[in-house]
Design a protein around this nucleic acid. Structure first.
Lengths: 341, 341
DNA sequence: TAGTGCATTGAAAGCGCTATCAAACGACGC
DNA sequence: GCGTCGTTTGATAGCGCTTTCAATGCACTA
């Protein structure tokens, strides 16, 4: 049984009220008494019981983070970012992954109802009526990550992929001078693919460039399928002096490897650019020109927003837009590429 | 203010004791009364206050997971595994990353003293006196991940890398017939490098093969440095018909790319194998023969052990050894490689 | 009718903390 | 000497829950 506030009080010959005052530092305590209490605390190795405290204050200093069952870098980067900031602000982080098929409502209900967390950051892969309904039920500060739920009053953090995608494509068109660009994305329904594709169309139109029917491919974000597509297409692409805009780094890597396997040079025969700036981007040869998506910043920002709302519940709901950033490496064949990055 | 047990009691016209009995299901409650209470609970959307409950039961059903500030796959895989199992067992997971330089004691103290968590899984990158001392202080069920702290009574989960490494090297020697194998590891002080190197030496000796002075290289687990080493060495290696055992997949990828860049064929001119079976392993061309390290199982096992001890505190400390597993793909040049995996 | 046993329920005592209110005390001006 | 004030402290009422113990009601036996 760990020491309680009563034990400290006894040892310091004061009442528990005084100990509490010393602990919370709000009220004035005589210098001499404080010293006595503090040394009693240290002697006993006392630290206040979180449950008792939470029961009174209705604060746990724990934040919940609800994520879809992501693999890989995104998952860990969000957690890392959130965790770091939470630590800085004196909070702990409770993580819950939702299984892929679940819409998140079940788990979010659990977490929120459970009543342990002071605030909640939620990332939902699939927005639907049930999701929305369960979000409405949350009565603690809530931040939605990377997904826009219309009509609900809560803070959100999104990443503006479009800006980065536009910058990337303008770079291909204006700086590198490509006239034909193929797009390789994920499923047509995928939100990221939609964003990136729309940037692609916009820039192509803006530059007055043609988008042929066969220039847009919908795959599954995997290396292998992109490699297979590459095997079939790289010769044709290189004959047309194309660039390929893959909607993530993994597919870009697959296409590069397919090109290399076909005896082509990247970027001389074919330029390939990716998206996300994951670990992979610096592992391909040539290194990938891509767009950096600030995942860990998103985690950190979510924690920030929750804490701000915790301090000031009246603050109007805000939407924080994080910019994605063009990272130029060698795979675009751009002369200004700075070798390493 | 969420409804309390009193609200439920009022609505069902019973005392709070009865409501509590219904909630916990330990004591017998009249069928009819139970129905009334249950519908009152549902009507009010009541769920018990965790703090009040924790205060009585001294259980939060939250487990702590303390990890070094890892990037990438390991980090997220451990969390994923732990999280899944925790969910299955009705626990929540609280994550803390420790900054790289920290020895973990500070944070562990925070988490444990704080008193929120019922149990703790800790992964320490650096074992020293301070770490050991702070581990001793933990009074709740503790599981140490992937690190052996001598003399402390607690459960631990380790991954037997050596078995996998031995299997890998025997495969190179016995099945593929390589007589010269170079080793590319991390720093000499790195625990993983030590394990993998010792497996290397053991198998080489067992097979009566020579290890030349220049056959062992200590790098930093990075792609780039491995690539550079590769650029300098691949020709020589291939002349000797060597295989290269890289102590992780990333370095293996670097060496493969260096070999390809030098116009060599992998595995025909040079075989390269890796370790860890990360995402990278299936992204290289040829795909990597490597050793799978069950990170997510480690997370799950940690949660299991904590919960077992929670149920039965008297259980003797146990050490769970997870086996690593040889994964044969194409990069070893072994005829039995099954193309895809 | 009184006594016994069982099933069901309620009253009340904490768990360890914070917060409110009142008490104690010396200093001060009148 | 007496009220007034400011400083410091203690007593105590909960927060929402579990748990112990006692009370109630009823069937059954003697």
């Amino acid at each position: 049984m760990p020491p309680s506030i009563q034990d400290v009080a006894d040892r310091a010959n004061v009442s528990i009220s005084t100990v509490s005052r010393v602990l919370n530092g709000r009220n004035v305590v005589n210098e001499h008494t404080r010293k006595r209490v503090e040394s009693a605390i240290k002697d006993l190795g006392y630290s206040p019981n979180v449950f008792a405290r939470g029961l009174m204050l209705r604060r746990s200093h724990i934040l919940g983070l609800v994520l879809p069952d992501l693999h890989g870098e995104f998952y860990s980067e969000i957690i890392r970012g959130a965790n770091m900031r939470a630590r800085e602000l004196g909070y702990k982080l409770m993580i819950s992954s939702v299984v892929a098929k679940d819409d998140g409502s079940e788990l979010m209900a659990t977490v929120a109802d459970h009543g342990v967390v002071d605030g909640l950051a939620v990332m939902i892969s699939e927005v639907n009526a049930r999701t929305r309904a369960s979000l409405e039920k949350v009565k603690i500060p809530l931040v939605v990550l990377d997904g826009d739920i219309g009509g609900v009053r809560h803070d959100s953090v999104v990443i503006d992929q479009k800006m980065g995608a536009v910058a990337l494509l303008r770079h291909l068109v204006n700086d590198c001078g490509y006239r034909r660009i193929a797009f390789v994305g994920g499923l047509v329904t995928n939100i990221d693919t939609i964003e990136r594709l729309s940037a692609y169309r916009a820039v192509m139109e803006e530059a007055g460039l043609e988008v042929a029917a066969g220039d847009i491919h919908h795959l599954d974000y995997q290396y292998d399928t992109a490699y297979e597509l590459g095997v079939r297409r790289v010769r044709e692409w290189s004959r047309r002096r194309s660039a390929v805009f893959a909607a993530n780094d993994e597919m870009a890597a697959g296409i590069i490897d397919a090109a290399l396997a076909a005896g082509l040079s990247v970027p001389d025969d074919l330029a390939v650019v990716g998206f996300d700036d994951t670990r992979i981007a610096t592992m391909t040869r040539p290194r990938l020109t891509t767009v950096r998506v600030p995942m860990s910043s998103m985690g950190a920002a979510a924690v920030d927003l929750i804490c701000q709302r915790l301090e000031n519940p009246k603050r109007p709901a805000s939407k924080l837009i994080l910019q994605s950033e063009l990272v130029v490496r060698e795979s675009c064949g751009c002369p200004s590429a700075n070798g390493r990055s």
